[in-house]
């Protein structure tokens, strides 16, 4: 697809919303777990170099939507996704799409830090090795170093790369997982409640990191902490009972939400 067509499509799909370039979008996304429908007709645009946070009560479908974006739901047999999810003009549920390549482009960081029981180095090198991204050991070393640097972990671990990643503190482990995800050089980074298992200081470090990463990645973050959503994201989307209730600039969502349900949820009333 040519650059012009790309721009034209972006302009068409992103009206007066934000000046950024459209990176991913969901159109009429429905998700079923067996007979149960988990997501209803979700339309959501995700713009380049922006942080968008998905908020909502437990079981509202925000994580489900997140996992649709890199087809992590494929691992669940009973899960069925309809509708269209587009990454740079390509339907990621198209038959020709290689899931392995998709997940390299759309990285993921999970709720609980989950470093592999390997050394710090091997943890970061895991993705590049699987995708055969480097030609030599030196190249791999460079990639590991730069990933750790971008994740803000390099200074803390540079002397003990051969030690197990599980020996790090919770916040460091989560940054290691971010470094691991960055190492595959993704374009979009999905974060599923990345700070829910961390203390406030570690959380602040990760939030600072998210803000820095925004320059190079598009970030979608699911969070239960509304303060966190307010702090880190430029756009916020509120999910409730499997439906996208409201989305908009974070400022507006948190000071003047349009929808009554959004208002009730973010002010701590039963929604």
């Amino acid at each position: 697809m040519s650059v012009d067509a790309n721009l034209a499509a972006t302009a068409a799909q992103a009206p007066a919303d934000k000046a950024g370039k459209l990176k991913m979008s969901g159109n009429g996304v429905n998700v079923f777990y067996g007979d149960k429908q988990a997501l209803f007709d979700v339309d959501l645009n995700i713009y380049k170099n922006q942080v968008i946070s998905l908020i909502g009560p437990s079981g509202c479908g925000k994580s489900t939507f997140l996992r649709c974006l890199n087809r992590m739901n494929d691992t669940i047999d009973v899960c069925k996704v309809t509708g269209k999810i587009v990454l740079d003009e390509q339907d990621i549920y198209d038959k020709n799409i290689d899931v392995v390549e998709l997940r390299a482009r759309v990285g993921m960081v999970f709720q609980k830090p989950n470093p592999f029981p390997k050394s710090i180095y091997e943890n970061v090198a895991y993705g590049p090795r699987i995708h055969g991204m480097t030609r030599s050991k030196d190249e791999l070393d460079d990639l590991v170093t730069s990933s750790l640097r971008r994740a803000g972990l390099w200074e803390e671990v540079k002397d003990r790369l051969d030690q197990p990643g599980t020996g790090l503190s919770g916040g460091q482990q989560q940054r290691l997982c971010i470094a691991r995800a960055i190492a595959t050089q993704p374009e979009v980074l999905l974060m599923d409640e990345p700070c829910s298992a961390l203390d406030p200081i570690a959380t602040a470090i990760i939030e600072e990191l998210i803000d820095e990463l925004r320059a190079n990645f598009t970030i979608v973050i699911v969070t239960h902490s509304m303060q966190q959503a307010a702090r880190v994201s430029q756009k916020t989307a509120f999910f409730h009972l499997g439906k996208l209730i409201e989305e908009g600039p974070t400022d507006q969502i948190f000071t003047n939400p349009i929808n009554k349900k959004t208002q009730d949820y973010i002010t701590g009333r039963i929604g």
């Binding site: 003047n256 939400p257 349009i258 009554k260 208002q263 009730d264 002010t267 701590g268 009333r269 039963i270």
Partner: peptide
């Protein structure tokens, strides 16, 4: 329209 008529979950806040 955005009038909060629901009670807060935290009653002391309310």
């Amino acid at each position: 329209m955005a009038t909060p008529d629901n009670e807060h979950i935290v009653t002391s806040y309310e």
